[in-house]
């Protein structure tokens, strides 16, 4: 099958790749660009482990075609830390034990970061509904929700 040539930006790097029209953005990130931070938990939009942003909008990369990345700005979990410096959410997740196995963590961090950019002062209910598409089977969400709320509080104080 004829492959499609795509030029795009991932975590501020210019990248080019060839992909089959059926390949998803998640397939491309993982298998062609070696960015395995986004995970496939379901492939059908139900678990959020593959969360990335496309032009700043939070999406499931398993529900975007690789071909659709043309000319877009993609951001993944690999781009959250700036060099050695972790994002406050990343610090807080470690400190609060907000991960057990950690497979959901990349998606949740991408989603939570996107929430705090839109709403720096979310209520517990808002955090829970925003993250409802990010399944975590290990933690019961308690420590995740606390980590997001407390990061938000810290970031408000710092700004």
């Amino acid at each position: 099958m004829k492959k499609i040539h795509v030029t795009t930006t991932v975590n501020d790097d210019n990248v080019e790749f060839l992909c089959d029209p059926r390949e998803t953005l998640l397939d491309v990130l993982r298998d062609r660009l070696n960015l395995t931070g986004a995970k496939e938990g379901c492939g059908t939009g139900d678990c959020g482990a593959c969360s990335v942003t496309v032009d700043g909008r939070l999406v499931c990369s398993c529900l975007v075609l690789g071909a659709e990345a043309e000319g877009k700005k993609i951001a993944t979990v690999e781009g959250i830390a700036k060099g050695e410096e972790l994002h406050p959410l990343q610090h807080k997740f470690i400190e609060y034990a907000a991960l057990q196995c950690g497979i959901c963590t990349p998606g949740i961090l991408v989603a939570a970061k996107s929430l705090l950019e839109k709403n720096p002062d979310p209520t517990e209910t808002e955090v829970r509904y925003w993250l409802a598409g990010n399944l975590c089977r290990c933690t019961g969400y308690d420590k995740i929700i606390r980590a997001v709320m407390d990061t938000a509080a810290d970031m408000r104080e710092a700004s």
């Binding site: 496309v54 909008r57 999406v59 925003w130 409802a132 598409g133």
Partner: peptide
């Protein structure tokens, strides 16, 4: 419809 992520699309 769906999650925040699905809402993005």
């Amino acid at each position: 419809i769906g999650s925040t992520q699905v809402q993005g699309r």
